[in-house]
Design a protein around this nucleic acid. Structure first.
Lengths: 225, 225
DNA sequence: TCAAAAGTGTTAATAGTACACCCATGA
DNA sequence: TCATGGGTGTACTATTAACACTTTTGA
């Protein structure tokens, strides 16, 4: 193979995953309490190195699956962090991705094996390197994306109540939403379908369960929340 | 230095610059007609390799300065493009940045030396590799950023008329804007200051020149356009 | 019987959009 | 004198925000 580039340096490239979950009315991140070097004993995002024969996006998917066992997860690239000293050991350039997962579906064994735990988004421990900056940028991007694309459903079970949906959006935006205005807007979205099923987990009276219809959305993408 | 990472591969890392300019009422990009390999003779973005002792952001600034002679330019990271075959020669992962420059200020000699030309944003030539995807993503991001942050002023001379400002935003959004509504919104922004100077370049009557006041903006950041 | 969450419409305020004519000047 | 771009205000429409009570049911 001819090469034009060999006067230039090469770098380690990693991916780091900001993994969002939603549980008991709160947004959470899945973080590692590192039982390996470097920075053993400290908290970090789940990460890993890009390999020769995989794209950077695929590396992110692989790393997410290594921790959670999940595939086909909603992920978005957050950005690349390339300061020379961001990793105090050796130079590594890292591409951050955020992922939205359903907390009922991940592989608990794998998570335990990696010594990972859910932390409430507003009570995060100190993270290594520039991981807090990555989290911050991911949160801003996610909030933004949520306002014009119905990504929230990735964080919920297939069936959910309107109260759950509202509390999810309240967690995403960190602000209270008026119940009637919220339900009015939801009812105008034909891709959020009411089922005949009733959830009795969270109230005596019971609440109708809803589901998100992907096909109806792609035909009629009116979403502003 | 101890290293934990040496089982992992390393990669060439490049930066590519989507350089926006605004001239004669039109948005343009500064593109290279490559007089070097690979892909000699084809059109591409200005790019370069990240070096050992510079951050990725600094590499982007350096590459922009190599072509334009400009420093302190507004730049934003667009994203990282890491498909395994994106560069058909050898694997290179590239971080794209967009830059907004004032077309009256760049170094014409340098640009000529690099065989670079301005192309109208809606009449771009075919670009190599994934550069068209980079341009597309940059345009979307720039439009978005322009809607809530006054970045447009980076594309204009220090003094500008309201007609120029309007035609800039029309170019950014690819749509016509009502003159009276536009001027009403501008007049509500205290950080856009009318001067007593009059521009006679573009009309017999002459138009008041305005300037952007950075300090007033940071105190009172109301901007929706 | 009562606590706790579910469900339901109307009104006021705000923001956004549409629209047409006179002005000043240099050629 | 006329062609060209500069400058101005009001009425209508659409969107968003504020707000309180009734229902159901299991403990």
């Amino acid at each position: 193979m001819r090469t034009y580039y060999n006067v230039n340096p090469k770098f380690y490239l990693s991916v780091d995953c900001i993994i969002f979950g939603f549980d008991k009315g709160e947004l959470k991140l899945l973080l590692l309490k590192r039982n390996f070097e470097p920075a053993k004993g400290k908290w970090s995002l789940m990460g890993g190195f890009v390999q020769e024969e995989e794209s950077v996006d695929d590396a992110a998917k692989r790393v997410l699956a290594e921790l959670t066992g999940l595939n086909d997860v909603f992920m978005e690239q957050v950005g690349t962090f390339g300061d020379t000293n961001r990793d105090p050991g050796e130079r590594v350039i890292s591409v951050a991705y955020y992922a939205l997962i359903n907390v009922n579906e991940y592989d608990r064994e794998l998570v335990q094996k990696h010594n990972a735990y859910w932390a409430k988004i507003d009570e995060l421990p100190t993270l290594i390197f520039d991981h807090e900056e990555m989290v911050h940028k991911a949160r801003v991007m996610m909030r933004h994306k949520a306002s014009d694309t119905p990504i929230g459903f990735n964080l919920l079970p297939e069936l959910f109540t309107l109260s759950q949906l509202q509390s999810l959006y309240e967690a995403i935006y960190s602000e209270q939403i008026d119940k009637r205005n919220f339900r009015k807007r939801i009812s105008e979205m034909d891709f959020i379908e009411k089922t005949e099923l009733i959830d009795k987990q969270n109230s005596r009276r019971g609440a109708y369960l809803y589901k998100f219809n992907d096909k109806a959305y792609s035909k009629e993408p009116k979403f502003k929340l």
